[in-house]
Amino acid sequence: MTDLILHHYPTSPFSEKVRLILGAKQLAWKSVIIPSIMPKPDVLALTGGYRRTPFLQIGADIYCDTALICDVLEHIEPRAPLFPERQKGVARVLAQWADGTLFWAAMGYNLSPKGAAAMFAGQPPEAAQAFATDRGAMRTNMTSLRPGDATSAYRSYLRRLSTMVEDQPFLLGDAPCVADFSAYHPLWFTRVVNPAVADILDHTPGVLAWMDRMASLGHGQMSKFTSAEAIAAAVAAQPAALTDGFFQNDHGIELGSRVTLAAEAFGTEPTEGILRAATRTRYTLERQDDRAGTLHVHFPRIGFVLKEVRA
């Protein structure tokens, strides 16, 4: 197997989700630290437009969105399974809720005026403004919760999570699954990245104990890597063969067509390329980059919009 290369930055909550999964599965991986805000020239050389964090690189294959990254890591290392055999559907649905509804409530609380002031304390005013401008651009046409509404929702969601770990160590049983990793990362941001507002967690001690169990999984075997080395690794490789020949054509767009793929809501910058695969669960685009060579960029179907590029 070619090296696992995770492009991330330390305070990224979705990156923490993947870092913990790498730890649970005891995998070795290379760490490329990327900017938290634009510009991101080395990122775009690999993804072609997608700018959300993190993304996973394996040679000349680029995997976008943590939902897809979870499937890739599960295939590589089935031990410490993310999808419990008799609860696969429940685990995926709960993870999707946590990555969306729970995440946005938590971040609305974490980045409330009080939270933002604490996060950027000691930094020049332009740092906070640059972050706000960057994230504002990513939320174009997206409705955001007001801080008060986000706080109310976050408190309720924490109580609901607490009831799930009253009689068992993890959300769906005796071992962590994808739902645990998805629910953990926005709470981790509260507790670790912005502890000035972490008192909201004190009302659910069961959640804090569960978070301790999650944190103990660690981050696997990480080694440092540069973005230049990652681009060189892509150039030196060829995209892996597409072994799943199943084509699910829900759009009337044939393989070989020039298309774009973009997230439905947050971070909607499109990636353009040639549609090489459209399976039941994912899309694959082939694209050429002057610096990174021939790449396959992979996206999950759920949460992404496929459009044909017409001349």
Rank of each mutant, 00 (worst) to 15 (best):
F246V: 13
R213D: 00
T2P: 10
L4N: 05
G23I: 05
T66P: 03
L20Y: 01
V235H: 02
L275C: 04
D42W: 08
G173A: 07
Q87H: 10
V32W: 03
N141F: 05
H75Y: 07
D212C: 14
C177L: 02
G59Q: 07
I302E: 07
V165L: 06
T226D: 13
F246E: 11
H203Q: 15
F304H: 08
N194D: 10
L217A: 12
E264A: 10
E74L: 01
L44I: 07
S12R: 07
V165K: 01
R86Q: 04
T11D: 12
A209K: 05
Y154F: 08
G122W: 02
L73W: 05
D202G: 12
C177A: 11
D212M: 00
A118S: 15
I253D: 14
M1W: 04
A24E: 00
T151A: 15
E85Q: 05
A183R: 05
A215F: 09
A130E: 11
G256D: 04
M1T: 04
M211D: 09
F170L: 04
A106D: 15
M138W: 11
L275Q: 09
S257Y: 11
P124F: 09
A265S: 13
M38K: 03
V72N: 09
A28V: 08
P39Q: 14
A130R: 01
D199Y: 14
Q238G: 11
N249T: 14
D199A: 12
I21L: 09
F304Q: 04
K40A: 02
W29N: 01
D71G: 13
R155N: 04
L46M: 11
A233F: 08
M142W: 03
L275S: 00
P270F: 01
E269A: 13
A311N: 02
S144C: 06
T133W: 06
S12E: 11
Y283G: 01
D134C: 09
H298T: 03
F83E: 01
Q248R: 15
Y157A: 09
L82R: 05
A240F: 07
M107N: 04
T101P: 07
A237G: 08
F131T: 07
T66W: 01
T271A: 13
P81M: 05
F225S: 02
T140D: 02
G122D: 15
G122R: 14
T268P: 08
A128G: 09
L171D: 06
G206R: 10
H7S: 06
R310P: 05
S144D: 12
V43Y: 02
I69N: 03
Q129C: 07
L208N: 12
Q129K: 09
D65H: 05
D202W: 06
G252M: 13
Y63S: 02
E74T: 02
D212Q: 11
A237N: 00
P84K: 11
A121Q: 10
A67W: 06
